[in-house]
Design a protein around this nucleic acid. Structure first.
Length: 131
DNA sequence: TAGGCCATCTGGTCCT
DNA sequence: AGGACCAGATGGCCTA
């Protein structure tokens, strides 16, 4: 990998067709390093911070980045519902997709319900339908 | 083994 | 000119 370290130690040795080319490659290496840092420190930290705000079951469930974004949206909608009704004790019901016409408890409501009543976890399909 | 996810590289664009 | 940001490409890893 082309990094400041590998460059400085001579580990990363690109084609050397003159000082200008070498300089350009080093600039590219530095740009790559900046982009890595930005992705790791800025973007990933933001995803991790956002992840901590989303209740899931189990709480330490691994979420992909796209899941974090989708669930964050769902959670905002959920909170908006509660704000609109003005009753945080009133669980919001969601209509399942597909052929199943039964209403089910919103996962976020279930998560808070579980804390109070120690309810058993819903199955995998439940998450699929309501997240 | 195919598909999903992720890190990394890269070139383009915009801003200071 | 140099850096930040972004989107597309690519290759590796993991899981069903």
């Amino acid at each position: 990998m082309c990094t400041e370290e590998t460059w400085d130690k001579g580990i990363f040795t690109p084609y050397q067709n003159g000082a200008g080319v070498v300089s350009a490659v080093k600039q590219r290496c530095q740009a790559n390093a900046r982009e890595r840092d930005r992705t790791q420190n800025s973007v990933n930290t933001a995803f991790n911070t956002l992840r901590l705000l989303i209740p899931t079951e189990p709480p330490d469930r691994k979420l992909s980045k796209i899941e974090i974004l989708r669930l964050a949206g769902s959670y905002i909608t959920h909170l908006d519902n509660q704000l609109f009704t003005g009753d945080v004790d009133q669980p919001c019901l969601q209509k399942n997709d597909g052929d199943n016409k039964n209403n089910s408890l919103c996962t976020f409501c279930w998560s808070s319900l579980k804390k109070e009543k120690n309810a058993p976890p819903p199955d995998k399909n439940y998450y699929k339908m309501t997240y």
